[in-house]
């Protein structure tokens, strides 16, 4: 009896796991289609507007769908960096403002993970950014000028020390050699 229960329980689990991937769920399944568009913002310095139109394979717009905007970046290989999340309106449209961090080629990826009986969708769009945010400038910390010059100050001190050592050594060697050559009289003798 216990063995039978075990077999039935295992079979039930298999059926439960299979359900989301097929069976009843696949009967009215709709494929999602996403289209990405990139436009300049109204004010040029504001950058771009990244827009996506999401519709089902039946042509109907998908509203209140959560989409994610990514930018492809290189960090130990290509990675997707999340820019923002948006929700589509009644027409299946969603958009976000975007000011790139740098100029040049950008690849935007929009992902819709799917919901209920609607499958996932991915769309990519590449554009050449001619507007970008001003490079980040770190605020000048207090005493920055002092800190920047410390190595030079220390360098001068180190060179002075080396100069003193050299003076002590070579000055003494020269003095002793010269003093030896002079017909000077030994300490304590009178001239």
């Amino acid at each position: 009896m216990t063995a039978l229960r075990r077999i039935l329980a295992t079979a039930g689990l298999v059926i439960a796991m299979a359900a989301p991937f097929g069976g009843a769920a696949s009967a009215d399944h709709v494929r999602a289609i996403a289209e990405v568009k990139v436009d300049h913002a109204e004010k040029l310095e504001k950058g771009y507007v990244l827009a996506v139109k999401l519709r089902g394979s039946d042509g109907k717009p998908l509203n209140t769908a959560t989409v994610r905007f990514y930018q492809t970046v290189e960090i130990f290989g290509p990675r997707e960096m999340l820019i923002a999340t948006a929700v589509t309106d009644g027409q299946g449209n969603a958009s976000i403002p975007y000011l790139p961090a740098r100029l040049g080629q950008h690849e935007i990826v929009v992902r819709f993970p799917g919901r209920d009986h609607v499958g996932a969708a991915v769309a990519k769009h590449t554009f050449d950014a001619t507007v970008a945010a001003a490079p980040h400038r770190q605020a000048v910390p207090p005493l920055a000028a002092f800190s920047a010059n410390v190595p030079y100050g220390v360098g001068v001190v180190v060179l002075s020390v080396w100069g003193l050592i050299a003076f002590a050594l070579f000055g003494t060697v020269r003095g002793v050699l010269q003093g030896g050559r002079d017909r000077a009289i030994r300490k304590g003798d009178t001239a």
């Binding site: 050594l169 000055g171 003494t172 003093g179 030896g180 009289i185």
Partner: peptide, 17 residues
Amino acid sequence: LGWRGTHAQERALARGV
């Protein structure tokens, strides 16, 4: 260095040391 203990040598050494 040819040390003979002259005044000049003593002075030079004392300064260096």
